[in-house]
Design a protein around this nucleic acid. Sequence first.
DNA 1: GTCCAGGCTCTTT
DNA 2: AAAGAGCATGGA
Length: 283
Amino acid sequence: MKINQFNLQDVLDSGQTFRYERLKDGRYLVLSKDQYGLFSEQKGEFIMETENEAYFKHFFDLENDYTTISKEIIKKHEKMKEILKYTNGIRLLKQDTWEMILSFILSSNNNIPRIKGLVKNICEKYGQKIVSVDQKDYFSFPTPEEMKKATLSELRSLGVGFRDQYIIDARDKIRSQEISIEDLRDMGTQDARLELMKIKGVGKKVADCVLLFGLNKTDVFPVDVWIERIMRDWFVPEDLKKNEIETYAFKMFGEQMGYAQQYIFYYCITKYREDLKNRSSQL
DNA sequence: GTCCAGGCTCTTT
DNA sequence: AAAGAGCATGGA
């Protein structure tokens, strides 16, 4: 199918999803929850090979019109024109709430390649085998129920470090229905945020990522180290307090600030990755 | 060896 | 309310 403003590799590399792999033939294996598919782009066509096309249409947010969204965002600030040149093809992925809670607990004080590795370890340990590609097995993201026997030391052995207790707490609060994922969907952004922050290891930033990528709430603006730096450099007064950046962003971008944030974030890490490549090629 | 990563918690002013 | 130390782990 033909899709405007969509770039598979950019979306996948944009730091909101962690379970994908580029295969030798150039296709991408993407897993979400207990679903999977093979995806590729050829001559501007997006090719989906999956038993659950509806799921991944939703996952990739294909029904949404990004030409309008990006056009509106570009109007809000001069710098966004430059940023969109590099990030035009990304989207806000609509992912599983529980998977986002755990993935972003793992994200704290961590980097993207390592988050991917940890998520994979957890899936291999507690998930179900759902497909085999190129002689390699791939697993579902485990439900809280499937993780009921997980222990602190077991999680440690998977490399999660100090986040072990956070994972246990998240599992327990979901499993006991102390926090109901179904209820989160119906709540307003702020209520859902406070609810998520009851989980140990979930502060504002992690909660906002769950809201954005796992609950389809776009009126959030997660501020991590990358966003904080570029915001001070380009968008806000340099001495603005960190917790004021979101307010400032809301004044700039309004309810769409979640999209803007993701564009800005991907621009940052794209530039960073280019720097690394240039540096290594100079040796 | 040092610094850093899609931060958070706990303690101290 | 605000600021700082400490935190597991692995890559640069």
